[in-house]
């Protein structure tokens, strides 16, 4: 079995634990402490930000243009229009900037 397969299997088990764990663990507590809940709420944005920020630093004009357009479209549209607009700008800009 390849390393990749084990990563996938372990990732699947970890994911299933999050999906069944809330019911098994959290629902036993009457109240979640507000600070814990605030921390849990912050997890997705915190993790995903770390995948964007360093990429922004290492990028060039084509990538920056794409990210700026993505952010602007996000003020109005959902995830899909936002992503398509950003991707379109990226592909277009790379034809000129490389």
């Amino acid at each position: 079995m390849s390393t990749t397969f084990w990563i996938i299997l372990a990732g699947a088990i970890a994911t299933y634990l999050t999906r069944v764990g809330g019911h098994l663990v959290i629902s036993r507590f009457e109240n979640i402490h507000p600070r814990v809940e605030a921390g849990l709420n912050a997890v997705p944005a915190a993790v995903l930000t770390t995948l964007v920020a360093p990429a922004v630093l290492g990028a060039g004009p084509a990538e920056w243009a794409a990210l700026i357009v993505t952010a602007l479209v996000s003020l109005r549209g959902g995830l899909m229009p936002m992503f398509l607009a950003g991707a379109a700008v990226l592909i277009l800009a790379r034809q000129f900037v490389g």
Partner: peptide
Amino acid sequence: VNFRHVLYSA
């Protein structure tokens, strides 16, 4: 990244 599911699950 999947940790938010804990809240859905509960």
